[in-house]
Design a binder for these strands. Structure first.
Lengths: 336, 336
DNA sequence: TCGATTCGTCGAATCGGTTCGACAACGCGG
DNA sequence: CCGCGTTGTCGAACCGATTCGACGAATCGA
């Protein structure tokens, strides 16, 4: 079932079979048909490894995801799905590599094994050794997120700074004078996770601009932590009348804490932030929030990657998305 | 940066370098060290495609997931994560292929391109053309789930029949005489999705055994559908005092419908079923449910796959899991 | 009718590894 | 000192494709 077998049965040379398949040289209609017939009969498909070896490219992209042990957020999952889908449409295969630490075998294999033509790197931290590793290896890659100095790299990111600022402005417009930010987990912040840092920066800046007061809390990515976190906020800062969050997994807990404190939304307390649409829609009333366009991001990342694979010396491009905030029911005028 | 370059710099032949790396023949300590030194210096790693070509195996497994367009359930996601993790531990790479229809290019590439040594096939339907395709291609594979005649194949599955029967028995023991099954979506049932069919079979059988009455409903995989579904049940069958479900995404909606109907859990209405732990824990009170051991399943699937790759003629093995039901707070005696 | 194109096909080289058979150097027992 | 087994290394074949240069046959213009 290799190309030689096809050639033998069709009574031609191996190169003729190759040209008949690729169309890179003219082959007479008669032999083309004869070859195609044998191919169909034997259900032949060229060996991808042999082809990759000779051509020097694999038609495969690597997708480096956070380690499986840490539960992926819904946004990240949407993103993975979008990348896989977009890649499939471009006839690219996707090699998955779970990688968290800066040195693990799976990542090394992807980087140095010449198994992929390029890489999409998720969950980039402000300082990320993997970026350097990829650059050093000369492997084209697109980051989801960006380091603190992203000038030399290709990336797609969401402007958390602007989004959280928008949320704060929205709350301030509604008369809230004391607001809270419910951030991602302390570990992620300590690890230099970009969205957490940038959201915090946007929060502080917006607070300052609007002359209101703000408190910020880290919160693990689960509903129990969200519940505890909001309870803590209510206890330590009873003046707070609204919260913004980028921690979607905390939302059910936030909801429960508000309910058990006897606070109605949005009458007594407003909630807003950034969340995948299905979390926003599961909140009651539905959450006024920026919908992360994970599907678009995935598609964009793939198309940027194909671009920088085909022209590695091109000037790096990037895409900073600021999705609009959908006004649903969870924000309202501050209680007096 | 190929093996010839290493050989040249170390002053040995290419084969010696290969043997020094693989250890398949003895190499003197002195040359081994010299070669290793050059390798470290140049950060050399053998080309995975060339190796795969010669060795006839790729050290890569394919993971065929439902198409990205359809949102994966949390259980499926846990499962993907588990497979990726287990594969990484076994130094295997994972090639992802989204495939739903029986004929798409991505799946065909995986099956016929000799890019993978074996495949893990998710979301198998009772009649699944992909199973036949894989068997015909002679590619080792392990199914997550099983067809209606799974004798010739390797698989790992959850015994939904037994689980739902257990749930019904539990409810019957608590005195419930009228129970409902909230199944997955009608489309999945129509497509012959195994868990949906087997859960229904288990439900009907258990109902009959215990001499109680049961109604079953299909429900799309989202909370809005769950809410609508439970409302419909309450309206059409007000005698029902308990529900079992395998539709975790419907749980928040079920909760909301119960709340807005003024029913308390478990005082007025009991809920149980099969759900990933985080859905069960987000229910209030927490859901009495079978926790799907997705992580174990993933690990088992990978280890079965490596086994059937190394010995394709072995008698097929399989694993039918019946996880225990964790008693939490969402079930109680039937209301009078 | 002859030389120049064009067309279709072939053989051989190549990609970067692995692996088999051969063989020289060496140590050892008799 | 000879024959033998062991050890370390090498050269060459091979995996399955792609691709380049060459070449015979058909076609064309002059």
């Amino acid at each position: 079932m290799n190309i030689g077998e096809i050639a033998r049965r069709a009574g031609v040379s191996r190169s003729t079979v190759s040209y008949a398949i690729s169309g890179k040289r003219t082959v007479s209609e008669a032999t083309r048909r004869r070859i195609q017939h044998v191919i169909d009969e034997l259900d032949y498909r060229p060996n991808a490894n042999a082809r990759a070896l000779k051509e020097g490219r694999t038609r495969t992209i690597g997708l480096v995801i956070p380690p499986a042990s840490r539960r992926l957020t819904d946004m990240q999952l949407d993103f993975v799905a979008a990348v896989v889908d977009a890649a499939a449409h471009a006839d690219l295969d996707v090699l998955l590599s779970p990688s968290g630490g800066d040195h693990d075998r799976s990542f090394e294999r992807v980087v140095t094994g010449r198994r992929v033509d390029g890489v999409i790197l998720m969950e980039i931290r402000l300082e990320d050794a993997r970026v350097g590793r990829l650059q050093q290896a000369g492997l084209p890659f697109v980051g989801i997120g960006r380091t603190s100095h992203p000038d030399g790299m290709w990336w797609v990111d969401i402007d958390y700074t602007a989004l959280i600022a928008k949320c704060v402005n929205h709350l301030a417009d509604l008369g809230h004078r004391h607001v809270a930010l419910i951030n991602r987990s302390a570990e992620l912040v300590a690890a230099g996770y970009g969205p957490a840092h940038r959201a915090l920066a946007g929060f502080k800046e917006a607070i300052r601009r609007r002359g209101i007061t703000g408190v910020d809390y880290c919160c693990a990515d689960d509903s129990a932590a969200g519940e505890a976190c909001l309870q803590q906020i209510l206890r330590e800062h009873p003046e707070v009348t609204a919260a913004a969050t980028i921690n979607e997994a905390a939302l059910p807990g936030i909801q429960r804490a508000l309910e058990s404190a006897g606070l109605t939304v949005p009458g007594d307390f407003s909630v807003t932030g950034v969340a995948a649409s299905h979390w926003a829609e599961n909140f009651r009333p539905q959450l006024t929030a920026a919908d992360v366009p994970a599907l678009d991001m995935g598609a964009h990342a793939v198309s940027l990657l194909t671009e920088c694979i085909s022209d590695p010396d091109a000037a790096p491009k990037h895409l900073l998305l600021t999705p609009p905030i959908s006004l649903r029911g969870s924000t309202g005028p501050a209680r007096r």
